[in-house]
Amino acid sequence: MQIRRESTFSGVLMLCLVLLLCHAAVASSERGEDREAMVKEQILARGVKDPATLAAMRTVPRHLFVPESMSHQAYQDRPLPIGHGQTISQPFIVAFMTEIIKPGPGRKILEIGTGSGYQAAILAATGAQVYSIEIIPQLADSAAVLLKQLGFTHVATRSADGYYGWQEHAPFDAIIVTAAAEFIPPPLIEQLAESGLMIIPVGSPFFVQTLMLIQKRAGKTISTSLMPVRFVPFKRADEE
């Protein structure tokens, strides 16, 4: 009798595990067509070409990183609110920033502002080791749980003040500061590796207007402003 009970219990446990794995797999594979369309129409069409980035954008289930009520909009060409005054970035911006960083196996990346966890997941999907910090505990916790559920083992998260970076794992090949403020914390610049790249999207919560790139080269720190959308100031009358 006892053996039967134990067998039944183990069987149920196995079944639950299998179901969980299946759910994760199904969830991941769901909306594959939407992701493909997103990559084709919003990302490739705008010039993002890096294969690792495109592969990550095709596989990471963005719809699981947005509130359920907005899941049907997850693959649209727009940022979406995720609560606490934060947003998940527009897919193109995520891909654009990822391509610039050139993540991949062996690369160590720090993210300040985990938010939904989507950017971290994209970076991890390229094989990079990601360290992600979020100041809002609720967002940090939910992102950590989701990343774990989806099997992103290359992402370490913590709820802390991003100002101090993550000294224990420095230096970083790249740092993304999505929780941008009116200054760039000196500890983050210190923790950026030589020739490393820091990227800071700048703009309103709902539209990134420019990307600030910070690089360390030969003891100098250089900033570069990039516009995802190129603006031509005007055409002279004689050019028309």
Binding site: I135, D161, Y163, E182, F183, I214
Partner: peptide, 18 residues
């Protein structure tokens, strides 16, 4: 709040505290 800092537009070369 402990994380609030006032350091608008500070140089990338600033190594002091904010």
């Amino acid at each position: 709040a402990p994380v609030l800092r006032g350091a608008v537009g500070v140089s990338l070369n600033w190594s002091g505290e904010m």
